[in-house]
Design a protein around this nucleic acid. Structure first.
Lengths: 207, 207
DNA sequence: TAGATTGTTAATCGATTAACAATC
DNA sequence: TAGATTGTTAATCGATTAACAATC
């Protein structure tokens, strides 16, 4: 084959942004939207939006534009968020608890099924309807029902060790808040969110 | 002029990562490091690291490598984190309070000077040594001492309105946790952290 | 048909990497 | 001097955008 047809990460990262705008348009009862209108709202070019979308199919009509509800549904399918995604938070320290309390996940339709920690002091506590379980329960949770994504918020020194356990259970995606590079096989994807690093790169522009 | 010599955002975002690794090396008493060693630890190419660094000067010695402490100090100067950076959190709801409690900012040397909210119920509360002030106090804080960066964690509907106030006070950098596109003049920089969007793009890979 | 907008190709732009002379 | 590694150029790779035929 000449074309591997692998869609780049950078494209995938834009799809949720498109989805967000479509959600708003839907709420405002918009029926149809053009790539130019989407681009305007997103601060991007119409060409980029059309190109991104055509990696996945032909969703628009020439001379008309895109049907809002239809395109949104397609995007949700592409992203895999048309079904209910089960998320677990591993590490229920300060940051973990903050994430348990964060309302945005539920608001976007995610199902935070549980939090996990080793500290017996924390086990059994409930924050924002999410209960903290001992780490050993992870296996049970994975078996019945499964967990689609783990949000990792452990202390840095134990992160890799815990990731190794998660990998054995078959976890495929990790949202990592721990400031440590994780070693995972290449079929597993890790997104890094490092708040201190975000702040540091901002500093550059304050001078 | 032929070369605008503008350094791209993508390069700036890598500098804190280099800094982090140098910090570790310093703790481990490493004196010298090569671009190959840094690349190994960061999962990047030696060429990229050397190129990134030479945008700002010549910090290494041929045949030898980079002096760890010296390079780290240079990076901290380039980023502007050699002096103590003052950060304010605007919006002390659930997410804002979680950010107040987040230990990583202090650990990286940031000074969280205050949080601000309009809700009289919250004003006066102290979380992790950070006090919540009424929004009107922002002006006073900006005058005496100043605020380098604002972490924005307000409700989405009022975000722009509050940003406009911050702009009038001369804020130059915003770390935005609000899922809304902010309108700012181009000399002001905004970094977006959208946790739900991070999760959504991860979903794509779990199928 | 005339006007609008997509889907897609080709051109452009920018970022990454390979390679190597300079030099410690 | 021989070996190592930087700084930097040129080649490559990938992403963005301009342009336009297709078509609603």
């Amino acid at each position: 084959m000449t074309k591997p047809k692998r869609i780049s990460k950078i494209v995938i990262k834009r799809l949720p942004l498109y989805n967000r705008v479509l959600q708003q348009l839907e709420e405002n009862k918009a029926e149809v939207v053009s790539s130019a209108q989407l681009a305007e709202k997103l601060g991007r070019t119409p060409a980029q939006i059309r190109k991104d979308l055509t990696y996945f199919g032909q969703f628009g009509r020439r001379g008309v534009g895109y049907k809002v509800s239809e395109l949104r549904e397609k995007l949700r399918e592409i992203l895999g968020i048309h079904r209910r995604i089960k998320v677990a938070i591993v590490g229920a320290g300060r940051l973990g608890q903050a994430l348990m309390a964060y309302p945005g996940f539920r608001k976007q339709g995610f199902n935070i099924v549980a939090a996990f920690d080793i500290d017996p002091q924390k086990i059994g506590r409930v924050i924002n309807q999410v209960k903290i379980y001992p780490l050993v329960e992870l296996e049970r949770f994975m078996r019945r029902g499964g967990i689609d994504i783990v949000i990792l918020a452990t202390p840095a020194p134990v992160a890799q060790e815990i990731v190794d356990r998660l990998l054995k259970l078959g976890i495929k995606a990790i949202l990592n808040f721990v400031p440590a590079r994780l070693v995972v096989p290449e079929n597993v994807i890790v997104h890094y969110v490092d708040l201190a690093i975000e702040l540091e790169s901002l500093c550059y522009y304050t001078k």
